[in-house]
């Protein structure tokens, strides 16, 4: 499970936000360049249609791959009491042939995008991650070098923290809200 808060910011204010975050988090920023591939199950495959994301971290000397599954958001009275999105999220680091495996299993590429920006990772009650990134689309398949912003002049801000199942960490949510 993870707590998530998302928002947007104009690119002209990103530099100031970065300085603010640097002071708040007390750690240096890390560059972010992630190729995200969203796959959907082929026709007739699975009890219900399913989606999975493959993330390729292009910032590493040798790109690394992660498979991510994002579940539905928490609902009900508990969810109404908090202002953050709480959802299931499972990640697994995988070898570089993950895309070939999922194609072989019958998954198809739905869309892909390139996230470019920076991130802060730090510990404050929970392991918190803040990312500020522009979301880019690719004119041709997998052409990350030719990616163009989806929303020029606007960037996405995302704050995430893990939440354990059954006892949603109040401090984690408070921290996310505080930030």
């Amino acid at each position: 499970m993870e707590c998530v808060v998302q928002g947007i910011i104009e690119t002209q204010h990103v530099e100031a936000l970065e300085i603010l975050l640097q002071g708040l988090c007390g750690v240096h920023r890390e560059r972010l360049r992630i190729h995200e591939l969203c796959l959907k199950s082929g026709p007739n495959l699975g009890v219900v249609a399913s989606e999975v994301q493959l993330l390729c971290d292009l910032e590493q000397p040798e790109p690394t791959w992660t498979v991510r599954h994002v579940g539905g958001a928490m609902r009900g009275s508990g969810a109404e009491q908090i202002s953050v999105l709480v959802r299931t999220m499972v990640e697994s680091k995988v070898s570089k042939n993950a895309l070939r495996l999922f194609y072989a299993l019958g998954y198809k590429l739905d869309h892909e995008l390139l996230r470019v920006g920076f991130a802060f990772h730090f510990q404050r009650g929970a392991q918190i991650t803040i990312t500020v990134s522009s979301v880019n689309k690719m004119p041709k398949l997998h052409a990350t070098d030719e990616a163009l912003p989806v929303t020029p002049g606007i960037q996405l801000v995302e704050v995430t923290a893990p939440a354990s199942v059954g006892k949603l960490s109040r401090s984690c949510c408070c921290n996310v809200l505080f930030l």
């Binding site: 399913s50 697994s92 495996l101």
Partner: peptide, 24 residues
């Protein structure tokens, strides 16, 4: 997948992802 000669190495959590996908 032997037929296609694919071997994938993943963290153990991939098993949870497969359960959630409900495709296999």
């Amino acid at each position: 997948i032997r037929g296609q000669r694919i071997v994938l190495e993943a963290d153990s959590s991939i098993q949870t992802i497969m359960e959630k996908l409900q495709s296999y």
